[in-house]
């Protein structure tokens, strides 16, 4: 399979603290890839590097073969990387539909003159954007709430709208940071179905961070495990479940806690 994202020997240090050391991984086109690890392992830090919010201390990131580390987010989104956040970042006082339409920002060609004189291009683009946003909302099952302010939506729905917004950017690589944090198990099932559909029907590559092991095992094709800023394992879900290092560093903690 063709490689979409490649992370090579990424190191990040804040002051004296080494948040990531020599992390490497590669995500293929069209797959669902998961990054797991205990709290404070550096998962979100790696996402911040990939999405341009943080310049790595050293190391390289390639997207479609192009070196992109250190580029600002507004240059990465147009070439195809879009993300969600651990603490959902929708605009609270903006409608659901307009939140999704923000994802269209980079593809709208309208300029100031178009807007001022309400040109044909402007009207067509706006109509198309509304239509597309509605379609995406239908896809994630949130079309009922298009005129609702984002702040009025329950948590699970907000997540879906945020995911819809990343789809709207047309990015090929979607980074989801703990998409099912704070959800109940029924909602989690719904969300994993949605992520599968995004992957299969919309042909997007999904790279996600998750805490819930079961969720990840069912969903992803490849997994990298981070612990204390280092990759400690890589493989298919089956391999990861067997890996003694992972059990030690990640599952082990839970099991021991459970037994005692």
């Amino acid at each position: 399979m063709e490689e979409l994202l490649k992370v090579e020997n990424i190191c990040v240090s804040f002051g004296g603290l080494q948040a990531l050391s020599n992390v490497s991984l590669s995500v293929d086109k069209g797959e669902i890839y998961a990054l797991i690890g205990p709290n404070g392992a550096g998962k979100t830090t790696l996402f911040n590097v990939i999405s341009g919010f943080l310049a790595p201390t050293s190391g390289k990131v390639f997207y479609n073969g192009r070196e992109v580390q250190g580029l600002p987010p507004h240059k990465l989104t147009p070439i195809g990387i879009s993300r969600t956040f651990q603490n959902i970042r929708l605009l609270p006082n903006v409608t659901v539909l307009d939140n999704v339409r923000l994802g269209h920002h980079i593809r709208l060609k309208q300029n100031m003159a178009d807007a001022l004189f309400n040109s044909r291009r402007f009207r067509e683009e706006e109509e198309k954007s509304i239509e597309d946003a509605r379609e995406i909302l239908r896809f994630v099952g949130m079309e009922k709430y298009e005129n609702e302010f984002a702040r009025n939506l329950p948590y699970g729905h907000q997540r879906k709208v945020e995911i819809a917004r990343t789809i709207a950017t047309n990015a090929e690589l979607l980074l989801f940071d703990e998409p099912c944090a704070g959800m109940n198990s029924a909602e989690k099932v719904g969300l994993s179905e949605l992520i599968l559909e995004i992957n299969k029907e919309l042909k997007r590559t999904v790279f996600l961070i998750e805490h819930d092991m079961r969720f990840v095992m069912k969903l992803s094709e490849e997994i990298t495990v981070l612990n204390q800023g280092q990759c400690i394992a890589y493989g298919t879900p089956e391999e990861i479940q067997e890996d003694p290092d992972v059990i030690e560093a990640y599952l082990g903690v839970g099991r021991k806690g459970g037994q005692e």
């Binding site: 919010f53 987010p73 956040f85 920002h105």
Partner: peptide
């Protein structure tokens, strides 16, 4: 509303 969100959308 949210500079971080704005950045992430390519603004």
């Amino acid at each position: 509303n949210d500079e971080v969100a704005a950045k992430s959308l390519g603004i």
